[in-house]
Design a protein around this nucleic acid. Structure first.
Length: 247
RNA sequence: UUUUAUACACCGGU
């Protein structure tokens, strides 16, 4: 079964969900029954292939089996619901997970997904409150959850709030990573402060992080969308000089 | 051992 699971996963995580499903069928044809991990891998295969509705249908089928979903299952389902804009349903699942007698409870991934969801649907205040709820429920944040919060503020140009989360990361003994810096950079780019964006970019380098193609793109965008076209082009050169392939 | 969360741009679809 592990062999099949690995094979399905190999197909699915490379975006090849059709192939993943073929292997899945082959597995049952050969008398090997899927387990919870198989189901999660299949859901994940649909998710990676952008087949969110198919994932939800599969989840419905799964409910008719003896295999109970776990937190990972529900996390994938929430992810798909958010992609489809079905925020209410995502919240329903989240709330049901938070009930005391629930079979599986939210973990750090669940909370991060919900923070991201509120960011996507523009309810930024809720990002912060979900983060606070998470802490109150004894779930320690990690760099990804912090980044989700910075990203939420950044996507709305709320640089002051983004910066305060960035500082909080350090105060709590974590180290901001490339995503943290790039998100903060975006917060400035989207609030018409390209020079501040550049400062963050340079700070990232000084702290021994290698900006990746996303970071460079973000800086180019910070300049470009604020009318500083020659600076934007200069970044492209800087990028080549630093050995980062433009995309 | 295998499954889930966060950053940019562009393009296409509804």
């Amino acid at each position: 079964r592990s062999t099949y699971n690995n094979l399905i996963n190999a197909c699915g995580s490379s975006g090849n969900w059709r192939e993943a499903m073929k292997v899945c069928k082959q597995m049952t044809d050969n008398g090997v029954s899927p387990d919870l991990v198989t189901h999660n891998i299949v859901l994940s295969a649909y998710k990676s292939g952008g087949q969110y509705s198919k994932a939800l249908s599969y989840f419905e089928l799964m409910k008719g089996t003896k295999i109970r979903p776990d937190t990972t299952t529900l996390n994938i389902v929430i992810h798909c619901l958010v992609k489809l804009g079905q925020y209410e349903k995502a919240i329903d699942i989240f709330n049901s997970m938070r009930e005391k007698r629930a079979e599986c409870h939210p973990d750090i991934v669940t909370f991060t997904s919900i923070i991201h969801m509120y960011s996507v649907c523009g309810q930024i205040e809720n990002c912060k409150s979900v983060f606070s709820t998470m802490l109150a429920e004894g779930q320690k944040p990690n760099i990804i959850s912090y980044n989700a919060l910075i990203g939420a503020y950044a996507s709305h140009g709320m640089h002051t709030e983004a910066l305060s989360v960035f500082k909080e990361i350090k105060q709590n003994g974590y180290r901001p990573d490339v995503v943290s810096y790039t998100s903060l950079l975006n917060a400035y780019g989207r609030s018409q402060q390209p020079e501040k964006a550049r400062e963050i970019f340079d700070m990232m380098k000084r702290n021994n992080w290698k900006p990746n193609v996303v970071s460079y793109n973000a800086l180019i965008d910070a300049y470009g969308s604020n009318g500083l076209l020659s600076e934007a082009v200069d970044v492209l050169r800087e990028m080549e000089k630093d050995g980062i392939q433009a995309n």
